[in-house]
Design a protein around this nucleic acid. Sequence first.
DNA 1: GATCCACGGGAATACACGGATG
DNA 2: CATCCGTGTATTCCCGTGGATC
Length: 389
Amino acid sequence: MDLSARVRRRTRVEGTQTLVADEDAISPVAHLPDPVGRGPVLERLLDHLAPAFEGTLPPDVYLWGPKGAGKTAVVTALVAALRRELTEPGSVIHTSTRTETPATPQFVYVDARTARSPASLYHALLSDLTDESVPRTGVGTDELRGRLERALAPVDAEAVLAVDHVSDPDTPDLDEIRDHLDPVTDTIAVLAVGRSPPDSLVGVVPPDTLEVTAYSRHDLVDVLTGRAAEGLADRALPHETTRRIADWAAGDAHDALAGLVGGVGYAEARGHATIQDEDLTDGLAAVPQPCQSLGRVVALSATRRRVLRALVDLEEGDRASVASATDAIADAVDLSPGTIRRFLYELASSGILERDPATEGGDGGGRPPSCLEPRFPTAAFRWPQDRQA
DNA sequence: GATCCACGGGAATACACGGATG
DNA sequence: CATCCGTGTATTCCCGTGGATC
């Protein structure tokens, strides 16, 4: 538990029993510095990265497994730890004074969801590799590429780049990433993280692959217990409830936490001091099956999130067609109907929404409309926003 | 002035259906 | 009966424009 979480817990006003101690600690999009139950995966990754500790670049590797198996948790925790341990203070690359070169490669974590274009990938890399501030606009992609080459030009200035969420519906695949990195290909090793099995990857597959399997029921209970210990009031999550979530989630920690957060949201709204059966029932119901990860939604632009929020708040009747949803959302969001409609189709084609052929045929000819259904955890999406307000 | 990116808007295409045509 | 056609919607695709930033 980090210090601020400890402080928050201790400073809770005596007597006013609050259910939630630390919102982030139970969030499906946040990760703990020390992931639970993934020790063997960490060990295998460390084995693979061993050459880096001797100052040489390890081969590329592809870490893959199903959603909610803890891939991101493991990789973010690992990169953070390695940066802490291996990077001596002040050993980041100073592009002005290049005399001191780190003996071991730098470790960088990039989420492909937010680094889709070459420009944003270079931006993410440069921000972590150098101590300079990197402009987002106003300077061309070629210029950024040049800066990256210069940053990795000195002898022994190498980097291990962890790229998360490759080959998602709307993220670049590994080949594209490698293309973007072409100018510095010899000085960067890629640790790619994704869901697709290696044999279904397009293009060149890394020489090594590591598979992560879903959490066992036992480990998932531990994950939930650990999160609840940090994020919720004591005894707010009865053990029975924890087991119920774990059974329901079938090894998917994302869905489990999304369901938990949903349940917490309902419990809070109803003034319950603990999560009751009805709260959890409603919370789990707000996690569609199958479910897109909340991380994808959070990574969307603010305008798209606003459209999604308005959609989630609509009456069911208004979601019966893209046209009616567009009209209703246009009343709530300051965007043109054309843009809202385009967003809705876009979100549907990437799987965040689903378009169901409307139950009733369109009245009077024409192609029948389709009903829009969220495919992401709606309660977990809404809850932090409503809590702010 | 250059750059990246997201919004806006509209053209082009796909689809469903009923009715006409061979 | 199979196919084509016209009409009305739904859906996809594309590109110009402008804001924010350097």
